[in-house]
Every structure is written in structure tokens, then in C-alpha cells.
Simulated scan of single mutants.
Amino acid sequence: MQLYTEKEVRSKEKVYKDISDPIVDSLIIEIQSGDASLFPDLLERSEVLLRKATYRRFIKGYERDDLYQEACLILVEAVEKYEPDRGMSFNQYVCLCLDNHFNRLIRKSNAIKRKSFKESLSLESILEENGYQLAGPAKTLQPEDKPIVNETMEEYIKYLSSFEKDVCLYCFLGHSYEKIAEDLGCTREKVMNAKHRCTEKYRKHFM
């Protein structure tokens, strides 16, 4: 068991900035009571918080103004759902909502990237293992997309058997089921079943 001095303990404690705003909290109470005319005041008071929430995020397909509009929509939803008796200030609550929302957008963006490679299944690592080289980059593959493709495929091939990897590679190279069966010394039906399992595993783990 490792012991720390009181000074060391204080140095390890993370300090959080108090973002609560009594004026905002009072505005929320009045707005929730039916005074919708105060919402522009709330928006003006919350602008700095919303700008900070969008400034440090970069999501493909979203411009800075788009992210700010998303943040404003979350603010509206937060006003409706906020419960003051939960022991959290409104600013704390809306920051939590913003984090959750933008994290969902990021996951969605990554899922779309992965799905865009569903048919081609860029098996770059498998190709290299088998001594093949790509004739050229895939049309849909952009330089900024390569890391997520590699990450996805490294994870994907872990779920495939040795035979399934071979079938997936041959399919990627454009060979027919008959040709694959001939090269691998098996039946066409076995190849088709393996290809089906490859597709189902991709859908299960990455879609």
C-alpha cells in the first residue's frame, strides 16, 4: 500500500472550476414556470458556455456554426428536462448534456466511416500478410480516414477464422466463388457460407 503526505494528496486532487450561475438558475425557474420571453436572456447568458463546448470539438461534416446550432438545440432540450432538486446547477447539467450529445455525434460519424467501407472491406493488413499490394487507393478512402480503416480492420480480422480470412481476401480481390473454391480445394457452398459468416461478423461487431 502506497502512502502519500497531505501535500501530495492535495497536489493529486483535480480542481474543477465552478460553472454554476445563480442568475441562469433563476431564469430557468421562471422559464419552466411559463415565462418563455426570458429565453433570449438565457441564450445570451449561456453563449460563452456554448461556444466553449463547441470550440474544442471537431466532427467531420460539421462546421463551427453547425456545432453551435447543435449546442443551442441541446440548451432548449435541457431547459425542458432540467430538475433543480437533483442537486446540480443548470450550467453543470447542460454541460453534461452537451458532452453526451457531441460524443454521440462522434460515435455516429465514426460508424458512418466504417459503414462506407462495408462492401470493399479494405483488408490492407491481410493483403500485406499474403504478399499482395493494392494497385491504388480506394476511391472512397481519404488520408484522414486511413487510421480508422486500419483500426477497424485490425479489430475485424480477430473475429475471422483462418479459412474465413482467405475467403474474405479472395472476395476482396474480385474472384468468383467457383475460383475461390478451386484455389482453396473446397466446395462452392463452403465458400459461400464462409463469406456469409464474414459479413455477419462485420455487421455484428461494427454496425
Rank of each mutant, 00 (worst) to 15 (best):
K14A: 06
K60G: 00
L38N: 06
E200I: 13
Y16G: 01
E30H: 05
V191F: 12
R51V: 15
L173P: 04
M153H: 07
L75I: 02
L127Q: 13
Y68Q: 07
F206P: 09
S116F: 03
A135P: 14
C198H: 04
N150F: 06
P22D: 10
A78N: 04
G61Q: 04
S46R: 06
E83V: 10
E124D: 07
L42E: 09
R114C: 09
H101Q: 04
D66H: 08
M1K: 13
S37T: 14
R114Q: 11
E124C: 08
A194T: 04
Y55M: 02
K52M: 04
L3F: 15
R104W: 10
L43V: 13
V79T: 08
R86G: 12
L123S: 07
L98P: 01
L173I: 14
E128F: 03
L121W: 07
Q69F: 04
R56T: 02
E154C: 03
D41A: 06
S161C: 10
D166I: 03
A194V: 06
E124Y: 12
K113S: 08
V191C: 13
A78L: 02
M153T: 08
R197H: 12
G131T: 09
I106L: 14
C95E: 02
E178H: 11
E63I: 03
I29R: 15
C72M: 10
I29Y: 15
K165A: 05
L173K: 12
E151M: 09
C198A: 08
A71V: 00
L27H: 12
A71C: 02
C168M: 15
I180H: 08
A71Y: 02
G34C: 07
S20C: 05
S26L: 05
V79S: 02
L43F: 11
P40M: 06
E70M: 03
M153E: 14
M1H: 13
S89Y: 02
E178M: 12
I23W: 09
P137R: 06
S176N: 07
K204S: 14
T187N: 07
V191D: 14
S176T: 15
T199R: 09
A78E: 02
L160N: 05
R56C: 03
R86M: 11
L169I: 12
G131Y: 04
A53V: 06
Q92L: 05
V76Y: 10
L38Q: 11
K139A: 15
L160A: 03
S122F: 10
H205W: 14
N110W: 00
V79R: 01
A138I: 02
D41V: 05
L43G: 10
L98C: 03
L27S: 07
E30I: 00
E8W: 01
T199K: 09
F163A: 06
R197S: 14
G136C: 13
M207T: 08
